[in-house]
């Protein structure tokens, strides 16, 4: 049987989005500038904070260099989500409301794939490069610091990429689940709000929640909606706040990251399928 090449379809999406972005040049440039300056301000804020303190908490190992590797990781995951999924998830909600999902359902290709990837927001990728630059710079600092016992090899890079991927999958799945609920609600504008709430919590090392009422947040965002795992696992692989040796807790977190990615993807697919059954297609 003839199968469409998913790679070719994705590349065409990417190309078409690029052509589209380029035809609105000024918009593209402004988008790049605004997201880069947001990152720069973010960076500046933490530079200021680190003038008052050497580390987040006692004996957590999140010193300045380690933390900026963490921050770079957040930028990369954020940027991947915004480049590849944010516009699509929003668009998906809109397609349900306007009935344009009809066309996606007609195509002989996986519908979830088709609605997940059509728009690639290239301008948002700028932050991923910035994050990468920050990570390389601070990793270099750490590796040249004789007081740190870093265990860094090519495998750390592979592991890092793998866990960033897992994290992105979790965030993507959460988004698709939320967007799918628009089929029942008719309209869902919680997507952006939700993204704002979530990113507020996952952009710090999990150790900052390990005190008082923070434990409640720690528990929720580690086990129920595992967004702390999303950001902390890859960052710890590179920054190694407590040295290169992996303890039981590191292994647990790493396993959770993989399980969370696979599990959330599976759940998102189930929710998506059930939701499609209720699709009623707006009037023509």
């Amino acid at each position: 049987m003839i199968q469409p090449s998913y790679l070719n379809v994705f590349l065409t999406f990417a190309k078409n989005s690029m052509i589209r972005d380029m035809s609105f040049r000024m918009n593209f440039i402004l988008q790049c500038i605004s997201s880069l300056s947001w990152a720069a301000m973010n960076y500046g804020l933490f530079l200021i904070i680190y003038q008052f303190s050497d580390s987040i908490g006692r004996q957590t190992g999140w010193g300045e260099s380690e933390f900026f590797i963490f921050l770079g990781t957040i930028w990369i995951i954020n940027s991947l989500i915004q480049t590849f999924f944010m516009a699509n998830a929003t668009e998906f909600s809109e397609m349900i409301r306007t009935g344009n999902l009809d066309f996606a359902l007609l195509k002989p290709i996986d519908t979830q794939f088709l609605i997940s990837f059509p728009r690639v927001n290239w301008a948002q990728l700028a932050n991923a490069f910035l994050g990468l630059a920050v990570i390389i710079f601070y990793l270099h600092q750490l590796l040249n610091d004789p007081s740190k016992k870093m265990d860094f090899s090519i495998w750390s890079v592979f592991a890092y990429v793998f866990f960033v991927f897992c994290g992105t999958v979790v965030m993507y799945s959460v988004m698709i689940i939320l967007a799918s609920t628009s089929i029942w609600m008719g309209r869902n504008q919680n997507l952006h709000n939700f993204w704002f709430y979530i990113t507020n919590f996952y952009r710090y090392p999990m150790e900052i929640y390990e005190r008082g009422i923070g434990w409640a947040l720690w528990g929720t965002f580690t086990f129920v909606v595992p967004i702390l795992v999303v950001s902390n696992v890859p960052a710890r692989v590179l920054a190694q706040p407590l040295g290169g040796h992996w303890g039981l807790w590191d292994w647990t977190l790493a396993t959770m990251s993989v399980v969370a990615a696979a599990g959330s993807l599976w759940v998102s697919r189930c929710v998506f399928r059930v939701a499609l059954k209720s699709y009623r297609s707006a009037s023509s």
Partner: peptide, 26 residues
């Protein structure tokens, strides 16, 4: 084909949407 809805990419030449359909329908 629905006269009141469009499947073509609004901001792109139709040729690009055709190409996309070529890949989707193999």
């Amino acid at each position: 084909v629905m006269g009141q809805k469009n499947q073509l990419w609004w901001d792109l030449p139709a040729a690009e949407s055709f190409r996309l359909n070529q890949h989707i329908y193999a």
